[in-house]
């Protein structure tokens, strides 16, 4: 079995009001010097295969088809 972590984040230049709200809240908690916060999603995926190349290809296809909306989001796949 292969375990992977997929990270989906908003593309640069896409406004992230949730990240902004988190950033402000960190400031209110007294954390100084927080330049910016961008929030996103993490998917931990287990695949029934030992084939790393196939896993990478499948995960990319999953991102393109469902996990990310590539109009506004970028994705990154890490095989763990």
């Amino acid at each position: 079995m292969i375990k992977a972590r997929v990270t989906v984040t908003l593309k640069n230049g896409v406004l992230d009001p949730q990240g902004k709200a988190i950033e402000k809240s960190l400031g209110a908690l007294g954390f100084g010097g927080v330049g910016s916060v961008r929030q996103g999603k993490v998917f931990d995926v287990e695949l029934d295969t030992k084939d790393r190349k196939k896993a990478e290809a499948d995960l990319s296809a999953m991102c393109e088809k469902l996990l990310a909306n590539t109009v506004i989001e970028d994705y990154h796949v890490d095989i763990l």
Binding site: V14, L15, P17, Q18, A21, N69, V71, I72
Partner: peptide, 17 residues
């Protein structure tokens, strides 16, 4: 319809949250 690719663009969380 946007998620299905039948219309361009995307609808995101309201700017005011």
């Amino acid at each position: 319809l946007t998620e299905a690719g039948l219309l361009p663009g995307a609808l995101m969380r309201n700017a005011g949250l």
